[in-house]
Write a protein that binds this DNA or RNA. Structure first.
Length: 417
RNA sequence: GUGGGUGUAGCUCAGAUGGUUAGAGCACCAGAUUGUGGCUCUGGGGGCCGUGGGUUCGAGUCCCAUCAUCCACCCCA
């Protein structure tokens, strides 16, 4: 093989594309019902957008971005996530001038230079939403409910919704101080990662997966211990709305979204049985992000769901994807003399809105039938010299095997009927 | 970035201790008395045994390197 695909990427082949269509179609349907409108932003942006919009101390920006200089010596980055670009577009196109809130959705590929493993790729696909312009806790609940609704429509079971509140610029520093105090005695024992976090963002120590750090952080103050009245009230309302909708969730006070401008609600949806990368979606509120990107103070909340991981979960749960029939009719020429007529009939069927095809490999009658059997059309249309002479065609129902002779003039009607 | 597993046909995999023309199943193609699919049977095409080096009379098999892939850490979707 001369050239292979780049590491961590994948070809979505015709045999599985129906899964992606199903996910996308279902998502669009949900978005329509929830009144979210699609936005399509570039796949690449100025690197600076992500440095500011994702945070330059995050792993994503520090080591996972596909960044390059274009021919004009501009630093360009393939988008690693969708929120920053949506924020940029909202500001750049003055969507703030229209009615608020602005509810957007997007779908498409994202890029991160990670080591590939089960459920993790360098090019992967997300569907996501962002709501700009309102701090209503009802919207926090809405986006979570929407994500769960989407999963449910796909047939996913046994998902776990974890939620937390990470506070706001007023109460976060209080927590930060208390965390520094708490970990100061055991600073040397923390993993090297967390020693760095201690300096930059002690909140994330709570999130560390290392068992050592886990032990050390037992009894540590959590975000929930330090919420100010406003944040605690917001969180209580979010939970109230979720309860109202009978959406089950667990409060996970260790769930942290690391960026400074993330505020209030953070959530994550976990699946089982798809390997170590079990998060199939996550999101949160980011009331500080617009300002970080140079805009006026504007609240926002959103989520992103990983399509590959959703498909993995569906497959591991044995959920069937609706498969659409490739064609309605396959036209077979019984003898070479009928070849031209078969070609004509195929186009006639297509012009009438039917999916149709014929052999293009010079196959024998038997082989044409065999091929038709694989394409699984509802009908096979058989044309031979006898039929030609009578102006008819054999119409064979492939499921039942029953064949009848119908006049060409009534073929479309008969197939549609 | 770190660690482990695996690279033989389109796919899933056999190929003890190195030894003739590298096999199977599935898939693909053709045929089973000449105008009909699914089942069955017969036959056929297809392999620089990931790549490069080394050891050896001889390497798919042993050694080294490299690349790819899978899994895990980290992080995330």
């Amino acid at each position: 093989m001369a050239i292979s695909r780049p590491r961590g990427t994948g070809d979505i082949l015709p045999g599985e594309i129906h899964k992606w269509h199903y996910l996308e179609d279902t998502f669009r349907e949900v978005c329509r019902e929830y009144k979210y409108e699609e936005i399509r932003t570039p796949i690449f942006e100025h690197t600076e957008l992500f440095e500011r919009g994702v945070g330059d101390t995050t792993d994503i920006v520090e080591k996972e971005m596909y960044t390059f200089l274009d021919r004009g010596k501009r630093s360009i980055t393939l988008r690693p996530e969708g929120t920053a670009a949506a924020v940029r577009a909202y500001l750049e196109n003055k969507l703030s001038a229209g009615p608020q809130p602005v509810k957007l959705y997007y779908t498409g590929p994202m890029f991160r230079y990670d080591r590939p493993q089960a459920g993790r790729f360098r090019q992967f696909h997300q569907v996501g939403v962002e709501v700009f312009g309102s701090r209503d806790p009802g919207l926090d609940a809405e986006v979570m409910a929407m994500a769960m609704d989407y999963y449910a429509r796909l047939g996913l079971k046994e998902l776990e919704l974890r939620i937390n509140s990470v506070g706001c610029p007023q109460c976060r520093p209080v927590l930060g101080e208390r965390l520094l105090e708490f970990f100061r005695p055991s600073l040397e024992e923390l993993c090297t990662n967390c020693q760095g976090r201690y300096q930059r963002n002690p909140l994330r120590i709570l999130d560390c997966k290392s068992s050592r750090c886990g032990e050390l952080s037992v009894g540590a103050p959590t975000t929930l211990d330090c919420l100010c009245n406003g944040c605690a009230g917001h969180f209580a309302k979010v939970k109230g709305y979720l309860d109202l909708l009978n959406i089950s969730y667990s409060v996970d006070s260790r769930l942290v979204r690391g960026l400074d401008y993330y505020t209030h609600t953070a959530f994550e949806i976990m699946a089982t049985d798809i390997g170590a990368q079990s998060s199939i979606g996550g999101g949160g509120r980011y009331d500080g992000l617009m300002e970080a990107c140079g805009g006026p103070p504007t609240p926002g909340i959103g989520y992103a769901l990983g399509m590959e991981r959703i498909i993995l979960t569906m497959e591991s749960q044995g959920i069937a994807f609706p498969e659409q029939r490739l064609i309605d009719a396959f036209v077979v020429s019984v003898d070479p003399g009928a070849e031209m007529k078969a070609f004509e009939i195929v186009f006639m069927l297509r012009k009438n809105g039917l999916g149709a095809d014929k052999d293009h490999m010079g196959r024998s009658l038997k082989a044409q039938m065999k091929y038709a059997g694989k394409l699984n059309p509802r009908y096979t249309v058989l044309l031979g010299s006898d039929e030609l002479a009578r102006g008819t065609a054999g119409l064979k129902d492939m499921a039942s095997g029953v064949q009848e002779e119908v006049p060409l003039s009534g073929l479309v009607q008969r197939i549609k009927g």
